[in-house]
């Protein structure tokens, strides 16, 4: 497990990270969101050992992280970090060897990935001749070729079409299922919400959200939505119910205390057929906007 412990980082006089602490668990996809300049890339670079923390530290499997640990990680920088003028096969072999594989092992693994990713027929072409989506496939192979113990990916979905997004999602999920901790940043909040098990939201260098992606964001004041065909005006009589919104056939309310929502439901059932009753979760986008305003 990769853990950040109260990490702080300055660029000159400017503090870009302030006491951030979070974990990237094995078998989990952890989404990392935040506005531009929030400190996501700096956090990831500290995790990879490319930058040092001015205060706090990062640990791996409970002990202090070392360069040797970090060299076993797979990393994808924010922009396309490959050699455009080199053939796909040659550069994958290079990235395999730079991660400590023998030449033979690097070629075998590269071929296996290229085959699985549908690029084996193009392995002798220059990288720049591929579409953006295919370049991103090669990029993820470069991060996976050495069998990483942890994956840190900066904007892996940026600029991808829906098919490529689906492909990348599948690959990341498979790696997580193999027990590899995966941390990735993205501005595609719906995707993060759908894909990730855990979420870390950074605002101006501080963590605002850290936990399960679909955790209730409304805390002690949940919101419920009830839908039925009958007239709902008599529901207002239930004590402790605050109506937040209302329309033909629906009402959204918050209970003053737990149990009030059950009373509302019983009253509704006595009035007629209830077609829907559920707790309302704010979407990640709504939570992001609310947090960053």
């Amino acid at each position: 497990m990769l853990e950040y412990h109260e990490v702080t980082r300055f660029y000159g006089e400017r503090r870009v990270l302030e006491n951030i602490s979070f974990s990237v668990r094995p078998g989990c996809l952890t989404g990392f969101v935040g506005a531009n300049g929030a400190g996501k890339t700096t956090t990831m670079r500290i995790g990879m050992g490319l930058l040092s923390a001015d205060d706090g530290y990062v640990s791996w499997d409970g002990g202090p992280i070392t360069r040797a640990h970090q060299r076993t990680f797979g990393y994808m920088p924010e922009e396309r970090g490959l050699y455009p003028k080199q053939t796909i096969a040659t550069q994958l072999r290079f990235f395999g060897e730079i991660h400590g594989l023998s030449g033979k092992a690097a070629v075998l693994r590269a071929d296996r990935f290229l085959d699985a990713f549908g690029l084996i027929g193009r392995k002798d072409e220059l990288l720049e001749s591929l579409s953006l989506g295919n370049q991103q496939r090669v990029q993820i192979i470069a991060a996976l070729i050495h069998g990483p113990t942890c994956l840190i990916l900066d904007e892996p979905f940026s600029g991808l079409d829906p098919l490529a997004v689906d492909f990348m999602s599948t690959v990341l999920r498979e790696k997580a299922q193999e027990g590899v901790p995966v941390l990735f940043s993205s501005h595609q909040l719906e995707l993060v919400e759908r894909l990730c098990d855990e979420l870390v939201m950074l605002v101006d260098g501080s963590i605002r959200v850290n936990g399960v992606t679909n955790a209730d964001s409304d805390g002690d004041t949940p919101t419920y939505r009830l839908e039925m065909g009958e007239d709902m005006s008599s529901l207002k009589a239930v004590r402790g119910m605050t109506i937040l919104g209302q329309g033909p056939g629906w009402v959204e309310f918050s209970p003053a205390e737990p149990g009030v929502e059950q009373e509302v439901l019983l009253r509704a059932v006595s009035l007629g057929a209830v077609t829907s009753f559920s707790r309302v979760h704010a979407s990640l986008t709504e939570r992001f906007l609310a947090t960053n305003r």
Binding site: L50, Q70, R71, F73, P77, R80, A143
Partner: peptide, 9 residues
Amino acid sequence: SRVVEILAA
């Protein structure tokens, strides 16, 4: 091209 980040890691 940011390749240096992969290499330095």
